[in-house]
C-alpha cells in the first residue's frame, strides 16, 4: 500500500491511453455519429419535401379531375343538345316528307278520280250513244254530234 513508482507508471499509461483515444478513437466515432445525424436529418427533410410534393400533386390531380369532369359535363350537354337538334330536324324532315307524300298521294288520287270520271263519262257517252242508236234506230254521226254528247257527258 505504499506510494511508489507505480504512480508514475500509471500516469504514463493514462497519458498514452488518453492520447491514443484522442487521436485514433474519438474523432472517427464522433465523425460517424455526426455524419449519421446529418444523413438522418437530410432524410427526414427529404421525406417531408416528398410529402409536400405529394400533397401538391394530389391538389393538382383534384383540380385536373374537376376540370375534366366539367369538360365532360359540357361535352355531354353539347351532345344532348346536338342529339335533340338532330331528332328535331329529323322530325321536321319526316313531317315535311309525310306532308309531301300525303299531298302527292292526294293529287294522284284526285287524278285517278278525274281519270276514272273521264273514262266513265266516255263510257256513258258510248252507252248513251248506243242507247240512243237503239232508241233512234239510226246511225248517228258521232263526230257530228260530239258537242252534244260532250255536254251530255258533262252533265252526268
Amino acid at each position: 500500500m505504499d506510494i511508489n513508482l507505480t504512480l508514475i507508471g500509471q500516469t504514463i499509461a493514462m497519458i498514452v491511453f488518453v492520447w491514443f483515444c484522442m487521436k485514433f478513437v474519438w474523432p472517427p466515432i464522433v465523425g460517424i455519429i455526426e455524419e449519421r445525424q446529418t444523413q438522418i436529418a437530410d432524410g427526414l427533410a427529404a421525406a417531408e419535401k416528398g410529402t409536400r410534393a405529394l400533397d401538391d400533386a394530389r391538389g393538382k390531380v383534384d383540380e385536373m379531375v374537376g376540370d375534366a369532369r366539367t369538360q365532360a359535363r359540357q361535352i355531354i350537354d353539347q351532345a344532348n343538345q346536338r342529339a335533340n337538334a338532330i331528332v328535331e330536324e329529323a322530325r321536321n324532315d319526316a313531317n315535311q316528307e309525310r306532308a309531301r307524300i300525303l299531298a302527292s298521294a292526294q293529287s294522284e288520287v284526285e287524278q285517278e278520280v278525274h281519270r276514272a270520271r273521264d273514262e266513265l263519262r266516255g263510257q256513258v257517252a258510248t252507252v248513251a250513244i248506243a242507247g240512243a242508236e237503239k232508241i233512234l234506230a239510226r246511225e248517228i254521226d258521232a263526230n257530228a254530234h260530239r258537242e252534244l254528247l260532250d255536254q251530255l257527258a258533262r252533265e252526268i
Binding site: M1, I3, N4, T6, L7, I8, G9, Q10, T11, A13, M14, I15
Partner: peptide
Amino acid sequence: PTTDPNITFGMSIS
C-alpha cells in the same frame, strides 16, 4: 488495480 492507491492517485494527479 483500483484497490491500489498508486493507480488512483496516478490518475487523479494527472
